[in-house]
């Protein structure tokens, strides 16, 4: 792992802990923004350059702005002082620990001898430049690409319908012009 990989990983870990353990939800959002930028750095270290820029534009630049809007407009105080007790955090830590403990030994057993540099002859193919990713997406994965655009359309329509205040009346109204609102 290179030096910049270590730096970004450390920032990502610290920010992730900041997301979970911050009382004020706004500070959690800021920690998540830092974490997303650190992940973009990690993608760049791993050679996925297009994904790094896309992560900044989409995740850190659009999704988190949306979350920040919601938090600022709802103007929430920090979580109410109802105590969590001891059972919930213990169960949560158990869940987290079991996630790591079940997968990690298997990964170590499988990959401990392979470094990321051994597949030298294939290495250039995994450099995620924009042209390479473009050829993959519009070549092999074109159907999935079109379907994902459909999902985005559903997202847009759904978000608008869910956040309208008035009830949406579908169908003709009694009296007046039928079929028109």
């Amino acid at each position: 792992m290179t030096f910049m990989g270590f730096v970004f990983s450390a920032i990502a870990l610290a920010a992730a802990l900041g997301v979970v353990f911050n009382r004020n939800p706004l500070y959690s959002a800021f920690s998540l923004i830092v974490q997303l930028l650190a992940m973009a750095g990690l993608y760049s270290v791993l050679g996925a350059h297009f994904l790094a820029v896309t992560q900044v534009v989409v995740y850190a630049g659009a999704i988190m702005v949306l979350v920040l809007f919601v938090l600022m407009l709802l103007n929430l105080k920090s979580e109410s002082g109802r105590k969590l007790g001891i059972v919930k955090p213990l169960v949560a830590l158990g869940v987290g620990f079991s996630v790591v403990a079940t997968v990690f030994p298997a990964v170590v057993a499988q990959f401990k001898d392979i470094s990321l540099m051994t597949l030298q002859e294939n290495l250039w193919k995994s450099e995620g430049g924009v042209k390479a990713i473009g050829q993959e997406i519009y070549g092999r994965y074109i159907v999935q690409f079109e379907l994902s655009s459909l999902v985005l359309l559903i997202g847009i329509v759904g978000a608008i319908m869910l956040s309208k205040r008035k009830r949406i009346v579908i169908g003709p109204r009694e009296g007046g012009l039928g079929g028109k609102q």
């Binding site: 930028l37 820029v53 900044v56 534009v57 850190a60 630049g61 659009a62 702005v65 924009v130």
Partner: peptide, 9 residues
Amino acid sequence: LFVLAMGSV
């Protein structure tokens, strides 16, 4: 695209 990303931040 980096310029666009910086505009987003």
